[in-house]
Computed example of a mutant assay.
Amino acid sequence: MILHCPLCHGQFSIEALIQDQAGRDLLVLMAQNGAIGPQLLQYLTLFRSQKRALAFDRALRLAREVLEIPAAPEHLAAAMAETVEALRGRGGKPLKNHNYLKRVLESQPQVAMPAATAAAVPAPEAAPAISKTARAIGRLEGWKNR
């Protein structure tokens, strides 16, 4: 079965996607993050060059990096949408990192996190012995339990 991407207009076989481990992992990641999945897919197209497709393993790595950014899902989705809108028609080189997205996130007004999520995520000042990874996992657990 041949699929046509509505974003990049590329064509690929669903069988090839499923046979590739990174492709399967990317599908699972998108399914688990369904609320921000469309914005994430559009954002990932900014990393694709004009002449080459974005490999599944690179797309998976980039998606994981984006989801590790410490921000509420709705803020992250809005920042990705704003980034795509700002950079879509520039016709330049593909993005190499997430610095532009991070700047967009910093420029957005921050809304206080809900009490349930805030309680699940320890403040960095209160618990300096907890690693960034542990705090990120706590945030993800908080988002999952909403």
Rank of each mutant, 00 (worst) to 15 (best):
C5L: 03
C8S: 09
Q11G: 05
I14W: 05
I14F: 06
D20E: 13
A22M: 02
G23H: 08
R24H: 06
D25I: 06
L27N: 08
L29M: 07
L29W: 01
M30S: 07
Q32G: 14
Q32D: 14
A35W: 13
P38D: 06
L40S: 04
L40I: 06
L40K: 00
Q42W: 05
Q42E: 09
S49M: 07
S49Y: 03
Q50I: 07
Q50M: 10
Q50V: 09
A53V: 04
L54F: 06
A59F: 05
L62R: 01
A63M: 05
E65T: 13
L67R: 01
E68F: 13
E74R: 07
A78P: 03
E82K: 12
V84M: 04
L87P: 01
R88D: 11
R90G: 12
G91P: 06
G92M: 09
L95Q: 07
H98T: 15
Y100F: 13
L101Q: 03
Q108H: 11
Q110T: 10
M113H: 11
P114H: 15
A116E: 13
A118S: 13
A120I: 12
P122I: 03
I130E: 01
I130M: 12
T133E: 14
A134R: 11
A134D: 14
I137N: 12
I137F: 04
L140P: 13
L140N: 15
N145T: 12
N145A: 15
R146H: 13
R146P: 12
R146Q: 14
